[in-house]
């Protein structure tokens, strides 16, 4: 796999406090990479290091296989979690200014900005002061500023906070569009729903260490815990009698003649073994594996156990 960005054994100390302990991540080209972790885990420190706002104590940062250099800030777009704009400055002027700091020429920035402003219905606000804009509109302006210089690597820190659902959708659409057009995206969030929806890969950081990383589908599969949901009718014998000690019945309910049961399968056994066992004794209405949500995986990894109502949440 081609990696656009790699961080290798990045360590950062603030006096006695260790903010990052030998964290490595590898972000595949043209993917959306979720950087997850509870508050204070070290995500922001890592993001600031990638943005070269602060320097790591040790560790390598590679963009496109080469060590990250100060000039590379032009190739990176960063939308911080805590973000703001100059309140008294006019929207258009401010956007041009920030684009210039990213290396764009004023005339070029203006042209690019106009098409983005049209797209986000912001054009009438070009000459207004930022303080006259609603929070949502300010967020849109910040998003545009982040992507305007067409960076190859985009870093979004909680991009959806403060957006209404309509604009969240608009933004998701734009983020997927950016990936389609070749951008690679690092995406830091607490919103696990959007992680499942958007991310191809994730890394989970807790207490300044990376504790989990990989492809989202593979990880969820790994955490599946061999749990299956099965619905049966026209049963010949009780379900308990059909299962031997390789299987464990966790719970069952009966409704309108249909038995709905949750069965845990011993490790190394496939779903086929379970089906083989049941096929003869009942008619199978539905069968699916209960894959834990990213939310559950997150909580399991950080706290050491699945959330209290794992079964219920596993169903959605």
């Amino acid at each position: 796999m081609e990696y656009l960005f790699r961080a290798e054994h990045v360590t950062k100390h603030y006096n006695q406090h260790c903010a990052l302990d030998s964290v490595s991540i590898a972000v595949p080209e043209q993917s959306i990479f979720g950087l997850l972790g509870p508050n204070g885990a070290g995500k922001t420190t890592l993001i600031r290091i990638i943005n070269q706002i602060i320097a790591p104590d040790t560790g390598n940062l590679l963009l496109n296989g080469r060590t990250l250099k100060p000039e590379d800030v032009h190739k990176i777009g960063y939308l911080p979690e805590e973000r703001g704009l100059y309140k008294k400055m006019k929207v258009g002027e401010q956007a041009v200014y920030l684009a210039q700091l990213k290396g764009l020429k004023a005339s070029q920035a203006k042209k690019e900005l106009q098409s983005w402003f049209e797209k986000f219905d912001l054009m009438p606000w070009w000459n207004k002061k930022v303080e006259e804009l609603s929070k949502g509109m300010q967020q849109k302006v910040q998003f545009i500023i982040t992507v305007l210089h067409k960076p190859r690597l985009l870093i979004f820190d909680e991009p959806f906070s403060g957006f209404d659902p309509i604009n969240v959708n608009l933004l998701k659409h734009e983020i997927l569009n950016l990936r389609k057009n070749g951008a690679t995206i690092i995406f830091s969030t607490h919103n696990m729903g959007s992680v499942e929806e958007l991310c191809d890969h994730i890394a989970l950081i807790n207490k300044s260490r990376k504790i989990l990383d990989g492809n989202v589908r593979t990880i969820r599969k790994e955490y599946s815990g061999q749990l299956f949901q099965i619905e049966l009718e026209n049963m010949v014998s009780p379900l308990e009698d059909m299962l031997d000690n390789r299987f464990e019945l966790i719970g069952s309910t009966k409704k309108n003649g249909i038995l709905s049961a949750r069965i845990k399968v011993r490790a190394h056994l496939s779903a086929n073994e379970l089906l083989k066992q049941i096929m003869t004794g009942a008619q199978i209405v539905s069968f699916h594996e209960l894959i834990p949500s990213m939310n559950d995986i997150f909580i399991k990894n950080v706290t050491g156990h699945f959330p209290f109502k794992q079964e219920e949440s596993a169903e959605d």
Partner: peptide, 18 residues
């Protein structure tokens, strides 16, 4: 202080050195 409290500073320092 304006830059710090309005939080624009993090956007700027990702483009230029503090």
């Amino acid at each position: 202080m304006e830059e710090k409290t309005s939080r624009i500073v993090e956007i700027i320092v990702s483009s230029v050195k503090p």
